[in-house]
Design a protein around this nucleic acid. Sequence first.
DNA 1: CCAAAAGTGTTGGCGGTACACCCATGG
DNA 2: CCATGGGTGTACCGCCAACACTTTTGG
Lengths: 248, 248
Amino acid sequence: MSERTTRKIAYPLKKQSLADFKVGVDNVIFSVDTSQNRLLVLLVMRQDEPFLGQWCLPGTLVRNGESLEDAAYRILAEKIRVKNLYLEQLYTFGGPGRDPREAPDSFGVRYLSVSYFALVRFAEAELIADGVSGIAWYPIQQVPQLAFDHNKILEYGYQRLRNKLEYSPVAFDVLPDVFTLNDLYQLYTTVLGENFSDYSNFRSRLLKLGFLCDTGIKVSRGAGRPASLYRFDAEAFVPFKDKPLVFI
Amino acid sequence: MSERTTRKIAYPLKKQSLADFKVGVDNVIFSVDTSQNRLLVLLVMRQDEPFLGQWCLPGTLVRNGESLEDAAYRILAEKIRVKNLYLEQLYTFGGPGRDPREAPDSFGVRYLSVSYFALVRFAEAELIADGVSGIAWYPIQQVPQLAFDHNKILEYGYQRLRNKLEYSPVAFDVLPDVFTLNDLYQLYTTVLGENFSDYSNFRSRLLKLGFLCDTGIKVSRGAGRPASLYRFDAEAFVPFKDKPLVFI
DNA sequence: CCAAAAGTGTTGGCGGTACACCCATGG
DNA sequence: CCATGGGTGTACCGCCAACACTTTTGG
């Protein structure tokens, strides 16, 4: 409030001067490596000033004729080859001064970032190394200092990921067609932490909902009883669509 | 996907041409008239082309040096005088062609809308009529065709309002300092519909949470037993902050 | 036979739903 | 004294956490 007031007093003659914007799209792309129980986020190394050589979220400026979502898909497609993914808009960061390319006290162009949140299937995601730029999956705990305000964006995305997992069936977009209940459980554990739920309770809750169907096929992983492979039944899920639903 | 592919093929030489943007902020401002049990949204009449004379959401273009949120507060302050309000970012709409000022097939400037969601206290909200432009509270069911894609934005905001009410204490930002439990119940009923919950259950659930304190003061509204006035105790609410919480 | 992993069952408590019922006031 | 709205109590059901237990495999 006080900020706004100050500004009005400071530049009373500039009241009508509209800012010009470049609009960027930045993606927070998550993936879960179930074999190692790690939650990963995709980072790339900046090739240009500012922040040359520093890690950041994959992003791009929006082109003519391109929608925001199109731009988000384009970045993604440039960085990884993947068939199954979930993507939605996250938040728009647009404060003045968030990009050093904005001259500090001039009325030059502003840089705005519309961020998108994505979750991809780790096993089938191929990173596209162009031989020039760095690109890597970073475990969420080991993310370094990022360029711009990207640490903030990432934090925001991480929050969203946890919510999505609890209240929507995103997990099934990111698991293989068939999976064991343990795979599913590991996914949840990796993202939400060890103590989110007991395995057997998680099991019965999910099965009672009725949209996971047992294929009958068994699969053995080393010692121990073989597990059933399940399939997500999109048909059976329809009644739950748009209803509040807890997967915890 | 196919859209993006087509575009790449259609304009291969334009690959690097970046769009220039004007960024607008549009507010979905809700208010609840508890005396008439109506959910209202603030609309203004457009004074300029395009869509001259048509109703739309109050909006503005972002000025130099102004953050998005500042712009949102500025619109609000230009249209209504109000002390208590809740405001948060809603969604960013930025597809090409959403504003007729974008020349249809040129590569001119694009118009992007960052929308904000607000809830204000009806009783204390004074509309600012400048004598020129139309401005009005519209019952949500009677909203006409709006300019641009504002009907879509409104729909999105309405959805958010219902979620917010169920999972967060926004209601207390918008009720008077002291209120009866029936006031609170009416607010919920007006927004969520009649059948969201039984009154007595709503009562006990809320009271059990312990952040509503009885002032002891009674108030009589016509016939019937007088009701207690309650106050929202922000201190007592702290432990629930950031915890999942259901107000249904 | 034992360890490991998958899967089933049981129990107690808490919380929601649907009511029935008492209380205080105006007319 | 009765209609009206405020407020309390109860009985049932379902859900969920915790944990014990059985089943099926590899070694």
